[in-house]
């Protein structure tokens, strides 16, 4: 099982926060890449969350902003998460 040393935080906004029901989620994802962490999160959260991150073919949506420790991530596939990292997931808002 996880230890505190594995934990990273996911900071959620907008509809994703609404569906998950939390603005911060601690998950034992240290060591994964950002891309892997999103796949794992979608797997764990189930079908209400998956369409907010991936399309029906499993490709990551192009309408997401992903931040690692408040910075945009160039290397989603290779940057490995470390304990205490914060991933922020933003979806655009249509309302006006």
């Amino acid at each position: 099982m996880s230890t505190n040393g594995d934990l990273v935080e996911l900071r959620l906004f907008g509809p994703l926060r609404e569906v998950v029901g939390k603005k911060l989620v601690s998950v034992p994802y240290a060591g994964l890449t950002v891309a892997e962490a999103l796949v794992r999160f979608a797997d764990e959260q189930g079908e209400s969350v998956r369409p907010m991150l991936f399309d029906s073919r499993g490709n990551r949506l192009r309408s997401l902003i992903l931040l690692l420790n408040n910075q945009t991530v160039d290397q989603l596939e290779t940057s490995r998460l470390r304990s205490g990292d914060v991933i922020t997931v933003l979806l655009p808002l249509a309302g006006g």
């Binding site: 509809p15 369409p51 907010m52 399309d55 949506l61 309408s63 979806l91 655009p92 249509a94 309302g95």
Partner: peptide
Amino acid sequence: CLYPEPPPPGLVPSCQEAGI
């Protein structure tokens, strides 16, 4: 540059659906 493509229709609710 922020969001290259819109989210799939219906994914992000409107204020009418979700409130503001």
